[in-house]
Design a binder for these strands. Sequence first.
DNA 1: TAATTGCGAAACCGAATAGTTGCATTTATA
DNA 2: TATAAATGCAACTATTCGGTTTCGCAATTA
Lengths: 106, 106
Amino acid sequence: MRRDIFQAIADPTRRAIIVLIALQAMTPNAIADNFKTTRQAVSKHLRILTECELVKQEQKGREIYYSLEIDKMKEIDMWLEQFRKIWETRFNQLDNLLSTIKQPKK
Amino acid sequence: MRRDIFQAIADPTRRAIIVLIALQAMTPNAIADNFKTTRQAVSKHLRILTECELVKQEQKGREIYYSLEIDKMKEIDMWLEQFRKIWETRFNQLDNLLSTIKQPKK
DNA sequence: TAATTGCGAAACCGAATAGTTGCATTTATA
DNA sequence: TATAAATGCAACTATTCGGTTTCGCAATTA
């Protein structure tokens, strides 16, 4: 099954999970405590996140700690880059326009 | 129907449409020429993009020109901000570590 | 050793999704 | 005015999605 990072962050629960484990690794049970869904549903989300390499696991006894692969998040950032160029350009254009208005030609 | 920007960019065709109209407004027919789907399918995507205000339309006679609402893209950027902080911190930590290795304690 | 805990996988279900075909409507053109 | 072009909308369909329930397995604990 083809997993895509953009499809992965489309679901609000998955985005919340990502935020939750961004700073510290957590077990599925601990994660599920923060939502009103079952642990199994969270487990499914974790599988999807793992499949697109947004999340990594570390087994400790019978517990599995999930944490965010922060580098993978940069892929979204990279996609945004092309638009960032556009909105910065537009901002500069607006800035120039405002300057022109403030300093009318003599 | 509740439309979400993250769900909007989840579909690869919609992402391609967004890129396509980022720099210049285009009509549905012109957009559809770039894909192997029907014009109606593209029209559906445009409706979804319009519903979450990622795209605006401008009617010109019988043609409708669609263009990107670049400011809306910033919402994704804002969500990424929290992770950007993390990966920049980690980068600095790595940087410090490398400096420490290069300059061993006397 | 027996019971409990933490977990993933499978089967199932209703809703959403992305696509198609077939219209109707408005505008431009012959 | 008749025809063609540009578009949106509705109905239908196959697939995917997010969720639950049930189960099995391995690790911990009583």
